[in-house]
Write a protein that binds this DNA or RNA. Structure first.
Lengths: 352, 352
DNA sequence: CAAATCAATAGGTCCGTACCTATTTGATGA
DNA sequence: TCATCAAATAGGTACGGACCTATTGATTTG
């Protein structure tokens, strides 16, 4: 059975969340609450302590207990957390730079962390964020295409009215999921159409199975093929995940895919530049060359895409602008604005 | 007057810090403490609650209250905070990559933040770290050559036995200041000696006034000149700070320095590559060219040093290795090892 | 009208008691 | 020897009372 102080705390929490107390209004006094809930004043104090720990209220002796749902709790400095899958790799430095360029101008401190796309690290980081009085979060969802064990932690964030902006991937099952994403479905379709317009008919794809970007890009790819009246063959599609990314091309399924590539496929939509590079590497071992034997198109336009050999044709991720958009949206949400999600378009960069 | 529960909490905190309770030993029971300090059990409980909030102890019903001073509080994941002056600029991405390469292998989550070399942000970040149960910190000191208003916060970290590794700059007034730094004094001397060996006699310098690196580099520079039997002229030395870095060369003192450069100085030791680049820019406006009119040597070997024009001669900062050293040291400290500070040498990179 | 004063109010500290529940431990018995 | 059970132990919840102190607003006073 739930202890009384828990019950009272939850009731108060609910009242605060439903906006019963506007602005910096004061709570009922301890004595009033004591009689309202028919418990002793000590029990009420214990309940309010919980809210205080969560940063929901502050108590002022002689004055009252005030509801705080406003930012800037730490001497006028805003606390913002940023959680992405990686920090120093791939396109993430650019995204972070975009976020930082916005936040550093405001009176903000930013805390940056990486999940490495692991839910256990996501859990540790969310727990840590819940311990602190953070004013807002920018989060890249972890394995958004799989059931997520940390949904309850996200809900606790929302209970505390902490604004969260998701980037790249989000959790559709959440009530609040303001996000800034790229148009992955449209991008998948665009990539396929580019290859179709070059006259290719047998178009394969490599997609990521554990995040929503992979699913959506596949969806767009499949829709574009269907729209062109072409069949979708499972043999032309290869799926990989975070865990087997480094070696899926060498495992049996991947190896089979590679060895029958020439018979099945003329062109491939690659999940991202990283995968495209790995694929080129493997193809060269099979004496297949890009683009003469197989054509590729990929996503992200990472730093390597323009300097590797051959240079990759790729859909360019907005990167800096993407981070800025997310940061600006978060700042507006912290200021109380109700924000809609953004979906940024890809830009086609044709190379070899 | 201090409330009793505060007094008791402080006493217990002291006992824990002095190692009275080894390992995961249990505290005296609440009733025993109650009689020991002659206060009621409720007051003892209030005191222990404070320790619990600080993560110093955990209570287990039916068993006892255990002293926890051990890491891995969050489901086996280590929490490490990294606080540097900048993240995405200059040599910091390299340092961060070095740190990350070590920590990501361990079962760690890392939280990365920037102070922009401002003590108010340092304060906000330290406060936030104190709120969380962080297992260790890597911190670049903020304005280490000036009195620091956040010393008390550092002492609170040490009271909780949270290991801290300082990088680049530290606070000498602190009891604990394990640090990983470059040999700034030796570097200053080396830079001056390189110029001396080229036959220059009138060697100037530009140094940072608000961090210890600037003071030490100046000290080495001055010592090298004295050792060579040369006078140290204040007119050949220019100081700048975080705040006026962007414009100190344009302000009156800097402008005066520049306009009388040719009469006073043959060569200059620059605080870092950034400053060297700014200086070259200003010199070119005065129709002075590097290295034909003035020779420069600087510090850090940042990414720009090798690709700007003219390419800079510079003392190379160990960067990646530096970050790795700091991270490895921190991990050892978290495991209970008593670590000494490290002072890494500079490597001379002669260019134009 | 402004300053000083006072009383009511609200939270903060402290105590003692009572009873609940998880853990530990040692005695008991199969 | 091992499983079981019960008592002792330690923290958890809850109450009521007493008094302290900062805040606030109304009242009095100059």
């Amino acid at each position: 059975m739930e202890p009384k102080y828990q019950f009272v705390a939850d009731a108060l929490r609910r009242d605060i969340a439903t906006g019963l107390y506007n602005d910096g209004e004061t709570l009922l006094t301890e004595l009033e609450l004591s009689s309202k809930y028919s418990v002793s004043r000590q029990t009420i104090r214990q309940a309010i302590s919980l809210l205080e720990d969560d940063g929901l209220v502050i108590r002022r002796r002689g004055s009252g207990t005030y509801v705080t749902h406003g930012p800037r709790k730490h001497g006028g400095v805003l606390n913002v957390g940023v959680i992405t899958s990686y920090i120093t790799d791939y396109i993430f430095p650019s995204i972070v730079r975009g976020i930082e360029s916005v936040l550093s101008g405001e009176n903000c401190v930013m805390s940056l962390s990486a999940t490495y796309n692991r839910t256990d690290r996501e859990r540790a980081l969310l727990t840590r964020m819940l311990e602190t009085s953070v004013d807002g979060l920018i989060i890249e969802g972890t394995k958004t295409a799989l059931p997520n064990p940390n949904i309850a932690l996200y809900e606790r964030l929302f209970e505390r009215n902490i604004p969260v902006v998701f980037i790249n991937g989000y959790y559709p099952q959440l009530k609040h999921n303001v996000h800034v994403v790229t148009d992955d479905e449209g991008g998948g379709a665009l990539a396929a159409k580019v290859l179709l317009s070059r006259g290719f008919k047998r178009i394969g794809g490599i997609f990521k199975s554990d995040d929503m970007q992979g699913h959506l890009r596949y969806q767009g790819y499949a829709a574009a093929l269907q729209a062109a009246g072409l069949p979708i063959s499972d043999e032309r599609v290869l799926w990989f995940s975070t865990e087997n990314k480094q070696r899926f091309l060498c495992e049996e399924t991947g190896s089979h895919f590679l060895h029958h590539l020439k018979e099945n496929v003329d062109a491939i939509v690659c999940y991202n530049d990283d995968i495209a590079l790995m694929l080129i590497e493997q193809l060269s071992q099979l004496k297949l060359s890009v683009p003469s034997d197989i054509s590729l198109i990929s996503f992200d336009n990472s730093a390597f895409a323009g300097i590797c050999h051959p240079k990759l044709s790729t859909l360019a991720h907005p990167k800096d602008a993407f981070g800025q958009e997310a940061a600006e949206k978060l700042l507006r949400m912290i200021s109380g604005s109700a924000e809609k999600s953004s979906c940024l378009p890809w830009e086609l960069v044709m190379r070899e």
